[in-house]
Computed example of a mutant assay.
Amino acid sequence: MRVVIIPGMGCTPVHSSNWYSWLQTEIGNRPDRFSECVLCEFPDPHACKESVWIPFVENEIGLDDSTVVVGHSSGAACVMRLLERRPRSSPLRGAILVAAAHTDMGDADERRSEYFSRPWDWTKLKEGATQIHQFHGTEDYLIPVAEGRHVAEMLEGDNFEYDEMPGHTHFFRPFQQLLDVIDRRF
């Protein structure tokens, strides 16, 4: 199994942003379970346009049915669009959404990212991974908790779990619950 981390908008250099390197190190400490953890610079890191990021993930990084993708903020929107595109016969092993939104929240940068330009296909999205887990902080000042709750409501089902984290903001620091979910579910 492999893990792919998809960062948020503006998270460059990616290795010194948020919790990404911490997670890569922790996954690397589990060689009996994970073959690799991909953490790399993304093209167009300040706009993170869907038209750039989706082909990059699919063609340069590569995904298969043994992949767990972890997306943070705009990276979570990218993961959601990737899940919509997965063939029903070959879902990803898992997806973890950290601070996910379903609208551009009136933000021009989010609007330009292209992820929110059309309705979500929640049925396809749910079928795009064997297991989906979502985290959202109740004190997130960038993506209101109502956004996360709506995503959770739409993804509700047998393969989905939602953790609403009291007192957490936009998850800029490592949080043990993320690693616990990976250890428990994957």
Score class of each variant (00 low, 15 high):
E60L: 09
C48R: 00
N29A: 15
K126T: 12
P31F: 12
V52H: 02
F42P: 00
S73Y: 03
F171I: 04
M80P: 00
A100W: 05
H102E: 09
A76S: 09
R185I: 10
N159L: 02
S17L: 01
S74F: 07
Y20M: 04
V38M: 08
M1T: 13
V14D: 04
K124A: 13
W22P: 00
D158Y: 08
M165P: 05
W120P: 02
A146P: 04
R88Q: 15
T12W: 01
C78P: 06
V4P: 01
Q131E: 12
L39N: 03
L179K: 09
L97R: 03
E50D: 07
R2D: 13
V3I: 15
P87E: 14
Y141T: 15
G28S: 11
A152Y: 04
S17M: 12
S113L: 00
S89E: 10
P166F: 13
F56W: 07
V70I: 14
V98K: 00
Y20Q: 02
A108C: 10
E36M: 13
P13Y: 06
K126I: 02
Q131I: 11
V52G: 02
V38F: 07
S73D: 05
T169R: 11
R88T: 14
A129G: 06
L179C: 10
I96A: 08
D64I: 11
E60A: 11
V4R: 02
P7M: 08
E114C: 03
A77F: 00
R149Q: 12
G75Q: 03
P91M: 04
I5V: 13
I182R: 05
K126H: 13
G71M: 06
G62N: 09
V68W: 02
H15V: 10
A76D: 00
Q24C: 12
N18A: 15
E41W: 06
S90P: 06
I61D: 09
L155D: 00
S16G: 07
A76V: 01
H150P: 02
P13I: 06
E156H: 12
G157W: 05
E127H: 14
E153Q: 12
H168R: 14
A77G: 01
G94L: 04
T169N: 14
I182S: 06
M1N: 13
P87I: 07
D44H: 09
M105L: 14
E164M: 08
R30D: 10
I5A: 04
T25L: 15
W19M: 02
L83M: 13
S17N: 09
G128T: 01
D180M: 15
L92Y: 04
R81A: 05
Q24E: 14
L97C: 08
G106R: 13
V38I: 14
C40H: 11
L39F: 08
W19A: 00
P31R: 11
I6A: 03
Q176N: 14
M154W: 03
D158P: 11
T169S: 15
V98Y: 00
D183P: 07
K126Q: 15
E156S: 14
R86D: 05
D64P: 10
H133V: 15
I132C: 08
M9A: 13
Y115V: 02
E50Y: 04
M105H: 03
N18V: 04
R30M: 11
W22Y: 10
I132P: 01
T169E: 10
D183V: 12
C11Q: 06
P55T: 06
F160W: 09
K49V: 01
R112F: 09
G137C: 07
W122Q: 08
E147Y: 03
T67E: 05
L97I: 08
H102I: 04
